[in-house]
Every structure is written in structure tokens, then in C-alpha cells.
Computed example of a mutant assay.
Amino acid sequence: MKRLLVLLAVVVLASGCGVRPSGVIPGENAPSGPPKGNVGNTATVYFVLNGRVVPVVRTGVGDVAADRVRALEQGPDEDERAAGYTTELPPSFEPIAIGVSDAAIGVDVRELSPNAVAQLVCTVIGAGGGGPSGTITLSGGGQKLPPRACGG
């Protein structure tokens, strides 16, 4: 009898909790794909292969241009080097500020080879940089290069 009273009390309390039934409530589409910032993200950086600047897809790189430039600064990984990829960027060019249409680095940009400039420009543009003009202005060492497009 005591159990029956306890059960009855639980049913009464649960039915009076104030939650009313409703129909389907519409909302946005469910998310798909990996979340932004996920270490499984893929990003494109540009290295040199047989004298030409080419895209290389990397995993575990963030979505923003600065993350991609930091990956570029690390150079080709062991597998990429074994496949013949190189870089013409100096060992530590210290990215300072990466914007939408400009990138400042810690070396004199006049001392960079055309391939090194293309590596930086294409990597930043590949991350959504370039603004309306589709170009990046590189600066560093007190110098500034004219705006450059990827492949141009």
C-alpha cells in the first residue's frame, strides 16, 4: 500500500510539472561536416615541386590564413620531402601580421625568390585572403612589394 501511494505521488508530481505537449518546432538545418577549428580540418599550403609552386593539402591546420602561414613556415613534412617538395622560404621568416589583403613577415621581402613570394601569396589567398582585388601585398624588412595574385 505504501508503494502504491509513493507511485501515485510520483505520477501526480510528474503530470503537474508544467511542460505542455507541443507540435514540431522548426529550426535551422543540422550541422554537417567537421566543426571549424577541428584538428582534422584540411588546408592548402603551397610548396615547390620541380621548380614550380604547387598546392599541398595538409590536415590539422586551422581555418585562418595565419594558421596556414605557420604551417608553411614549418616547411614540407617528412613525407612531402620524400615526394620531392621543397620550400624557397627562409628557415624562419616569422609571420608578423596576416590580414585580408596584406601579409607582414620578419624578413626583407626583396630578398625572397619569386617562388617564395608565390608560396606566401597563394597560401594566404587560398585561406580566403586577397579581398576584392584577389591580391596580397607582402611587406617585411622595411620594404613592401606590389600587390600580387596567386599565379601572377
Rank of each mutant, 00 (worst) to 15 (best):
R3C: 03
L4V: 12
L5K: 07
L5A: 10
V6H: 13
V6N: 11
V6M: 12
V6E: 13
L8D: 04
A9L: 14
A9N: 06
V10F: 08
V10W: 01
V11S: 15
V12A: 15
L13S: 12
A14I: 02
A14S: 13
A14G: 11
S15D: 02
G16C: 11
G16I: 01
G18I: 04
G18H: 07
V19S: 08
R20F: 04
P21I: 03
P21L: 05
S22R: 13
V24I: 11
I25S: 09
E28P: 15
E28K: 15
N29A: 15
S32V: 15
S32K: 14
P34I: 15
K36L: 14
G37R: 05
N38V: 08
N38W: 09
V39K: 14
N41I: 12
N41P: 03
T42H: 10
A43C: 05
V45G: 06
G51N: 08
G51A: 08
R52N: 12
R52I: 07
V53M: 07
V54E: 09
P55F: 02
P55S: 07
V56R: 14
V57P: 09
R58I: 09
T59Q: 08
G60V: 12
V61K: 01
D63L: 13
V64A: 13
V64Q: 09
V64T: 13
A65I: 08
A65R: 08
A66C: 07
A66Q: 12
D67V: 09
V69H: 02
R70K: 15
A71K: 02
E73S: 14
G75R: 00
G75S: 00
P76M: 04
P76A: 07
D77S: 12
E78A: 15
D79H: 11
A82P: 09
A83E: 06
A83N: 10
G84N: 01
Y85K: 09
T86M: 09
T87L: 08
E88K: 11
L89H: 07
P90Q: 02
P90H: 04
P91K: 11
P91Y: 00
S92N: 14
I96S: 10
I96A: 10
I96K: 14
A97P: 05
A97C: 02
G99M: 07
V100F: 04
V100D: 03
V100Y: 00
S101K: 10
I105H: 07
G106L: 05
G106Y: 02
V107S: 07
V107M: 01
D108A: 10
E111H: 12
L112V: 12
L112G: 12
S113I: 14
P114I: 05
P114T: 13
N115F: 02
N115Y: 07
A116T: 13
V117W: 03
V117M: 05
Q119A: 04
L120G: 10
L120S: 05
V121N: 06
C122E: 05
T123Y: 02
T123D: 00
T123E: 00
V124N: 06
V124H: 03
I125C: 06
I125Q: 01
I125K: 03
A127C: 08
G129Q: 00
G134R: 09
G134D: 02
G134Y: 00
T135E: 07
I136T: 08
I136Y: 01
T137P: 10
G140R: 04
G141A: 07
G142L: 04
Q143N: 14
K144A: 15
L145R: 08
L145S: 10
P146W: 02
P147Y: 01
A149L: 00
A149N: 06
C150I: 00
G151T: 02
G151H: 01
G152P: 14
